Computed example of a mutant assay.
Amino acid sequence: EADLRAAVVELLERRDAALTAGDGAALAALTVPGSPAAEEDGALLARLRAAGVRVEGLVTELASLEERGRAGAGGERVRVDVEVVTRQGGYALVPGGAAARGAGGAMPPQPPRCSVLTVLGPPWRVEEVGGC
Score class of each variant (00 low, 15 high):
Arg125Glu: 06
Arg77Cys: 02
Ala51Cys: 05
Ala99Tyr: 01
Ala92Asn: 13
Val8Glu: 01
Gly130Ser: 09
Ala63Glu: 14
Ala103Ser: 13
Leu65Gln: 03
Glu10Lys: 01
Glu40Gly: 12
Thr31His: 07
Ala92Ser: 13
Val116Ser: 00
Gly121Ala: 01
Ala26Gly: 08
Val119Met: 05
Ala7Val: 06
Thr60Asp: 01
Arg70Thr: 04
Pro112Tyr: 00
Gly96Tyr: 07
Leu117Ile: 03
Gly96Lys: 10
Ser35Pro: 07
Arg68Phe: 01
Ala46Ile: 11
Glu66Val: 13
Arg15Ile: 10
Arg54Ala: 07
Gly22Glu: 09
Leu62Gly: 01
Ala2Arg: 03
Ala98Leu: 09
Thr60Ile: 10
Arg68Met: 02
Trp124Leu: 06
Gly69Ala: 09
Thr118His: 01
Gly24Glu: 10
Gly89Ser: 14
Gly89Phe: 15
Leu58Pro: 08
Gly69Met: 05
Gly105Asp: 14
Arg5Asn: 05
Ser115Pro: 02
Ser115Ile: 00
Gly131Val: 12
Val32Ile: 06
Gly75Asn: 04
Gly90Met: 13
Asp23Ile: 14
Ala37Asp: 02
Arg54Gly: 15
Glu56Arg: 12
Val8Arg: 03
Gly52Ala: 05
Ala98Pro: 04
Gln110Asp: 04
Arg113Phe: 04
Arg15Cys: 03
Trp124Gly: 02
Ala50Cys: 15
Leu30His: 08
Gly75Phe: 04
Arg47Tyr: 06
Arg49Gln: 15
Gly75His: 11
Pro122Glu: 10
Gln88Asp: 11
Asp16Ala: 15
Gly24Thr: 02
Arg5Glu: 10
Glu39Met: 14
Pro36Cys: 09
Gly104Arg: 07
Leu11Gly: 04
Gly90Lys: 08
Glu83Met: 07
Leu117Pro: 00
Leu4His: 10
Ala2Met: 14
Gly89Gln: 14
Asp16Tyr: 11
Asp81Trp: 06
Asp23Phe: 02
Pro112Met: 10
Ala63Cys: 09
Leu120Ile: 08
Ala100Pro: 01
Gly96Ser: 10
Ala106Trp: 09
Gly22Leu: 06
Ala98Glu: 15
Ala2His: 01
Pro109Asn: 08
Ser64Val: 00
Asp81Gly: 04
Glu56Val: 03
Ala71His: 05
Gly34Val: 11
Val119Asp: 00
Ala18Gly: 08
Ala17Cys: 11
Glu40Phe: 11
Pro33Trp: 00
Ala37Glu: 03
